[in-house]
Amino acid sequence: MSDFAVEAHAIVRTFNDGDVQALKGVSLQVPRGEVFGLLGPNGSGKTTMVRILSTILSPTSGSATVDGFDVVKHPDEVRRRIGLAGQYATVDENLTGLENLRMIGSLNHLEKSYVIARAKELLGEFGLSDAANRNVKTYSGGMRRRLDLGAALVANPPILFLDEPTTGLDPQSRQDLWTIIENLVEGGTTVLLTTQYLEEADRLCKQLVVLDKGAIIAEGTSQELKTRLGATVLSLTFHTTGDAARGVELIRSVSAKPANVEGTVVELTVEGGPAAAADALRRLDAAAITLAGLTLREPSLDDVFLSLTGHKTEDETAPNSDVVTTKRKARAQ
């Protein structure tokens, strides 16, 4: 059997008779027993990839195997080995937590006595015992996600797909889910997780790929990506856009990466944050430019994207010149 829990080869998926290319030839290999991350903004193709790997959607071309079984040729074998949970916690609102798990267990063709024991075990593990007999309608967002994850785990699948499991959750619920995922992996489960959060990928994923507009633009360990990216973002707020324009020329050499200017705010990805900040301040002081604000922060997914692609995640237009965008893309590939 393959060393990889999930293998995808040149997956292409188009919609609307080819008008929309959601995936443009994505290949990946997910090693067993670890969390593999699929990082990308909305519309990058993450969910489409998960839907293909979980047999919900068939690829337009390319092939994929899960636990050694082809997702198109042997979907039932794949379905017996996977659990799927995600952003749109698709639990049944009109059933109780326990009834939801029992329904999924029954549809997984498991013995009734096993399902009942397993459902109670999962509800306990996820802190839902007290709510087990309440309608899901009364659950909070975090509780729904945990129940959704529980439903994915009823059959004890060796491979778990989590599609943005923490999007929209409060920090505490997010922490809770991270702990659950870590425990699962310790128990030998392979997890393929999609996320928009670099922090999440950094905490959970051993390896990850970055998707943009249906193609992989970077892959490696999160450490490798962060090194490539630079560790910190230096954000300077000037009093006027004129100051910002003058300032950016003075401090450009502080970072090897291009500066991002938006109005009076200039952002630079730097290595060695405090030293770079001091350096920038000295140069601005010498030119008698004062600042309205200065912050140093961990890079966000936006910064990763800016660094890798030259465009931000939300808007499709490149903030810098087209030349920079093209160069960045060329380097990323």
Partner: peptide, 17 residues
Amino acid sequence: QRGLIERFRALPMARMA
């Protein structure tokens, strides 16, 4: 609309059920 049918698709159940 709620995505339940899609979720069912990832289960080893009879599709027509």
